[in-house]
Design a protein around this nucleic acid. Structure first.
Length: 877
RNA sequence: GGGUGCAUAGCUCAGCGGUAGAGCGCCGCCCUUACAAGGCGGAUGUCGGCGGUUCGAACCCGUCUGCACCCACCA
């Protein structure tokens, strides 16, 4: 913090000179956001005649709070929707939250555990009530964070996956799928989390390399024995066969016979199955149909019994000495017992293999045989694949399409039932005589003795898969649904392509008569820390975006995220970068402050090009180019590019060169100053509008001050007027080149930047520059030369000559070093270009513009060599 | 076991066939009346290795190495 006193916060209509010298985000952010919402800027009206533009907010889980990844995603969506709104589209950004079944239930269970209670102590109803209470607090926190970020969502349409309307949607589509035979109930091996006590789907399983131990066990006796290997010895209690490959001669004599299963009083058959790899291990595999998905399949093929030996807590239930042991205890106990019987044939050896873990609690998954509800995905997935294949839905960046196809083309059926309490209860009733009735939203469930509803709830992704249309009122045929479905684009992370995007595609196509839920899928990367490491709480590098917003302002956080957003690529974020963005916001602030202090205006027509100076024409020419550039980047979801383009245009061109050059004009006054004031007003007006979608707060505060407009939120998006002035651009480039060259000389000579130096400027060789003489003198701190120079340094730059009176202060050696270095560079350039131009093949095959460029470079090198030679000759000594 | 992506300045990343770029960091000099959250100047790279295509390659092709991530029912 500086010691300068800060004037109080100011309103949009206070005098312009009230602007403090530093931008203080806290003074404006809250006030502006409230104003935007109050004025209804973000409300989408289905009745307007405007073309619709709709995006859904990927609903955050009600658990916890927003992390940097959310801030990132929201920034991108907010920028897209703000621009479209400015372009005159009827823009909907649909907000809401996801009940996040298993995740939320876990969180609340942990809360309960702190009180020494389990959900069973409360009972289902009270527990669910408790979750709702918790949701109320947590949801409020998230919407508070979204307000801080500046998210332009339509709050009047906020939805929750468990609210009444969305629950109706869930029930409706369940019933429809059920009636179409696309939902069924079946007993299968599923991924079971023994801690969450529920089934989870395949993609909720995270595989990690774990160190296990492979033990080899002999089944049967003597000649008729067979050795199998396993990492889960305890499952042998549930073995109901040994399988070998049909062509494996080693075991041919055993097939069809039985071997005794150690530690039990059972004998199990040896079966031949193609699935067995004879090359792996001993070529014989134990078969546990109730506890392994492969074995389940083998068991099915051979009609083997499915013997369950573990309960839902992964505790052994098989009668005998192991009963009551946890699976890991049982594992070592079983191995010890086998060893005692001499059944372990080889010492157990370390074995690294891939083991499934629950994505929610990291507990090792236990494959388990159980009755679950399933969605038959094949027909749905095919439609989802086709929609992308035939171009109705585009995926950005397109390289990500392969991931999408990888999944939709290789789908297993989706296990949608969860043994949880928090979620949409499956709308199926079972009758006393084994009847199964699926109940639609407007139907009365069957009542009477023996009827009861399914206790399982649906996978949380079942309801979020309906998000693009359930939020718009489906299954009712609402105006909003007709207007805003399909969505224009879906913006989300590539990590939930399978979880969420594919499900929305399947359900959208199914429920909405083959119309896919969005035209475009724009995938972004993950937020990482400044070293490119994944942000995670356990790693300790996760940051709360609110902390940075408090310290540097929302705009700074947003600009940093946008600047890192290359399509589909992970974005690293560090505090240094947020600071840099804060500095940029402050720069924008101060440039506008300068403009206001100097009477910049947006009033009246823009003067004609004839009236303007080359400087004015140059910046307007550049401005229009940037407008087109930014538009092209937006249309291609190139947030990093557009942010960078704006950053450099604003800072380097407008704030540095244009503002500096115009100071001279303003000082001189008169009509040229008036023209420049109008041009500066124009340039800032347009620049602020261009920046607004990414940095909404500072731009609105400044824009309303500058223009007295209502709000930049509802201002028109800039359009390229088509004005270009290449001659003016060349002219200003020359001025910049000249000034830079002389500055370099000054720095090399040790002249302090503020030190005024007498100088003669001879610009006659470049007539266009004469108009800029005052500006050049001012930028270079050159004073008019009075009388004779005592010591002169002459710089021929860009055809002009600058003679500086150094009054004996010239550092001859420094200058000689500088010139020698430049000379070497110029000679190298000459050699290179000459060689190139002497190459016949090059001249014959290279395009003209390349050859011309090389010629120009050679000419420039020659001129440089001559110039530097002259300068060196003049050096004393 | 498959698949995809990435290896460019100290760090994080752009560039993707025609003189190596940005931000931050670093080294000088400056509080020049919009801004020190600033200004000016500067240094820094065998563009992962090796081959090939081409007049020309960071960019295209092959190959190797290293690193990410995704998918997969390997006991």
């Amino acid at each position: 913090m500086t010691e300068k006193t800060q004037p109080p916060a100011f309103g949009p209509h206070s005098a312009s000179t009230d602007l403090p010298t530093q931008y203080t985000p806290a003074d404006v952010e809250r006030k502006l956001y409230e104003r935007w919402v109050e004025r209804g800027y973000f409300a989408a009206d289905p009745k307007s005649g405007k073309e619709p533009y709709a995006i859904v907010l990927p609903p955050p889980n009600v658990t916890g709070s927003l992390h940097p990844g959310h801030a990132f995603e929201h920034t991108l969506i907010d920028a897209l929707t703000r621009r479209k709104r400015m372009q005159g589209y009827e823009t909907l950004w649909q907000p809401g939250m996801d009940h996040a079944g298993i995740a939320t239930q876990n969180v609340v269970e942990r809360e309960l555990a702190k009180e020494g209670k389990s959900r069973h102590d409360l009972g289902r109803e009270a527990f669910v009530e408790r979750v709702w209470k918790w949701k109320a607090e947590s949801g409020g926190r998230i919407s508070g964070q979204m307000r801080r970020l500046g998210d332009g969502v339509d709050w009047s349409r906020e939805r929750f996956t468990m609210d009444e309307g969305l629950s109706r949607a869930v029930q409706t589509i369940f019933k429809r799928l059920f009636d179409d035979g696309l939902i069924y109930r079946a007993e299968r091996i599923i991924n079971w989390c023994p801690r969450c006590l529920t089934a989870i789907s395949d993609i909720e399983v995270e595989y990690q390399e774990d160190d296990g131990e492979l033990v080899s066990i002999r089944y049967g006796e003597g000649e008729d024995s067979v050795v199998v290997a396993t990492t889960r010895a305890e499952t042998m209690l549930g073995d109901t066969a040994v399988a070998v490959h049909p062509d494996d001669e080693r075991y041919a004599h055993l097939v069809g016979r039985t071997v005794r299963l150690p530690l039990t009083d059972r004998s199990i058959p040896v079966v031949a199955d193609e699935h067995v790899d004879p090359e792996f291990g001993t070529g014989a595999v134990k078969v546990t149909p109730a506890h392994d998905p492969n074995d389940f399949e083998i068991g099915r093929r051979h009609g083997l019994p499915q013997l369950t030996v573990m309960d839902e807590h992964a505790i052994i239930t098989a009668h005998g000495p192991f009963q009551g042991l946890d699976r890991l205890e049982a594992r070592s106990a079983v191995v010890a017992a086998l060893r005692a019987e001499g059944r372990i044939v080889a010492e157990k050896r370390p074995y690294r293999h891939s083991v499934g873990h629950c994505s929610r609690c990291k507990t090792t998954i236990e494959p388990r045989l159980s009755m679950q509800w399933w969605v038959k995905v094949a027909p749905l997935a095919e439609a989802a694949g086709d929609a992308v294949r035939d171009g109705r839905v585009a995926i950005h960046p397109k390289e990500m399409s392969s991931r999408y196809f990888e999944w939709v083309d290789n789908l297993h059926d989706w296990c949608i039932s969860r043994q949880l309490w928090w979620g949409h209860r499956i709308p199926v009733w079972y009758g006393p005589d084994g009847e199964t009735v699926c109940v639609g939203p407007d139907e009365e469930p069957p009542s009477g003795d023996g009827w009861h509803q399914e206790t399982d709830v649906l996978d949380t992704w079942f309801s979020s898969g309906l998000w693009p249309f359930s939020t718009l009122g489906w299954p009712e045929k609402t105006e909003s649904l007709a207007r805003f479905y399909p969505n224009s684009v879906l913006v989300t992370g590539y990590d939930i392509l399978f979880f969420w995007v594919a499900r929305m595609m399947m359900f959208g196509l199914y429920a909405m008569d083959g119309v896919p839920p969005f035209h475009t899928i724009a995938l972004h990367g993950m937020v990482r820390d400044q070293f490119g490491k994944k942000m995670s709480k356990s790693f300790g590098n996760a940051v709360d975006p609110l902390d940075w917003m408090d310290a540097y302002g929302s705009d700074a956080v947003r600009f940093t995220l946008a600047r890192g957003a290359n399509p589909g690529v992970d974005v690293p974020i560090g505090e240094d970068w947020v600071q840099a963005s804060r500095n940029f916001a402050n720069k924008v602030w101060n440039a506008t402050r300068f403009a206001l202090l100097n009477g910049a205006t947006v009033e009246g027509e823009l003067p004609s090009p004839e009236e303007m100076s080359a400087t004015d024409r140059w910046i307007l020419s550049r401005l229009n180019s940037v407008v087109s550039e930014v538009d092209a980047y937006y249309d291609d979801y190139q947030f990093a590019k557009l942010s960078d383009a704006l950053f450099h245009f604003a800072w380097d061109e407008v704030f540095d060169w244009y503002v500096e050059l115009s100071k001279t004009t303003f000082a001189a006054g008169g009509r040229p100053a008036e023209v420049s004031r109008r041009v500066l007003g124009e340039v800032l007006d347009v620049t602020l509008r261009l920046l607004h979608p990414v940095t909404p707060f500072v731009t609105d505060e400044l824009w309303t001050t500058l223009t007295s407009g209502e709000s930049v939120v509802v201002a028109a998006w800039p359009e390229d007027s088509g004005f270009r002035d290449p001659a003016a651009e060349r002219e200003i480039d020359t001025v910049r080149q000249l000034v830079t060259e002389v500055r370099r000389f000054r720095a090399d000579q040790g002249l302090q930047p503020g030190q005024r130096v007498p100088a003669a400027l001879d610009l006659t060789a470049v007539p266009a520059l004469t108009a800029h003489e005052e500006a050049i003198r001012s930028l270079l701190r050159l004073q008019p030369a009075g009388g004779d120079f005592t010591a002169t340094a002459t710089l021929p730059v860009a055809g002009a000559t600058v003679a500086l009176d150094l009054s004996g202060a010239i550092d001859v050696e420094a200058e000689r070093r500088r010139l020698t270095k430049d000379l070497a560079a110029a000679e190298k350039e000459l050699a290179q270009t000459t060689a190139k131009l002497g190459n016949e093949a090059f001249l014959a095959k290279a395009p003209d513009h390349v050859v011309d460029k090389i010629r120009a470079r050679r000419a420039a090198a020659e001129a440089d060599i001559a110039r530097i030679g002259t300068q060196l000759d003049r050096l004393p000594g």
